[in-house]
Each structure stands twice: as structure tokens, then as C-alpha cells.
Amino acid sequence: MKRNRRAKRSMKLKINGVEHELDIDMRTSLLDACRDHLGLTGSKKGCDHGQCGACTMLVNGRRINSCLTLAVMHEGDEITTIEGIGEPGNLHPMQEAFLHHDGFQCGYCTPGQIVSAVGMLGEVADGWPSHASADVKAGAALSGDEIRERMSGNLCRCSAYPNIVDAIETASAKMKENA
């Protein structure tokens, strides 16, 4: 007979600046903790295996696939979901730009695209190169090709890609203006 493993564990998660206490199965992914236990359903499950990007969240400012990590491993981290990016009435410039450029159709991959784009701009601001960079030694500058490469971890089957690229360019300019 198998050992009787402790199934549940209480944990604290800090999401969008709010501390949550949870008593959940150890196996719960960060994504499912949000969707099934905290009512934060903005982050989507498209594949549950890190193959689509719909679940993208920021952890300590960096984008990750929240489906491929255990909630319990994120105690003490600052987690941001789409709900923490902006809300109707107070949209983030990235959300505004997606709206105006029609950077989505069905909308299912959209929260992941938006959170990923926000995280991606942070990476560019930090000078990270990409596969599309002609010279990895140099700092990074945003271009259409750079956005396309850096956003390739976010699938969109409706195929809003051209509009997403436009939206990111617009939002990037707006965010620099606001900064």
C-alpha cells in the first residue's frame, strides 16, 4: 500500500498585491489556484503544458507559464494576473491598445498575450536580446520582428497576430510617454 501522503497544504499567495490564504492540494498549479480557488479566472488554460501561453502571469515582474508551476512554490512571490494589470474603467495602456487595434477575436488567449506583452516590454527595457536580435551583444530595441519573436510563446488561433504587434507598438510608445 502506498504511504498516505499529505494531500493538502495551507499556503499564502500574494496576488495583485493581495495576500490570500489557501488550503489546497499540493498538486495545484498556480493557474488552477487562481482559477478554481480564488475566482481569478482571467488567466486562461489553453493547454496546461506550457505550449500556448494563455496562462501567462508575472512573477516578481517576469512572465511565466502559470500552468507549469506549483502554487506552493510561489509563497513569498509577487504575482500579477490580468486582473492586476487593469480593469474596465481603468485599463492599462496595453489593454487599451489591444482594444483599439482589435488585437483579439475570441479573446481566450488575450489575457495571456497582454500579460506577456507587459512582461516582454520589461525584458526589452532591461536590455535583453532575443533570437531576432542581429547582435546579441548590443542592447535591445523594439521592432516588428523583435515583437514577433518575443511573443511567439503566445499562440492565437484566431490569428490576431498582426493587430497584436500593432497594439504592442502603440502601447509601448504610450507607456514611454507616461513614464
Binding site: 482559477r35 481569478l40 479566472t41 482571467g42 488567466s43 486562461k44 488554460k45 494576473t81 490580468i82 486582473e83 494589470i85 487593469g86 480593469e87 474596465p88 485599463l91 489593454q95 487599451e96 489591444f98 482594444l99 483599439h100 482589435d102 483579439f104 479573446g107 481566450y108 488575450t110 489575457p111 497582454i114
Partner: peptide, 18 residues
Amino acid sequence: DRYEGKLKVSGKAPYAYE
């Protein structure tokens, strides 16, 4: 702009599971 767009860009549009 899409009628339901603000809900979709903010994760507030409820899909079946939600």
C-alpha cells in the same frame, strides 16, 4: 471597437468553465 472588448482585455468575460 468590439462591444465586449473591455471585458475580454481585462479577463472579465466568462467562458464556459468560468
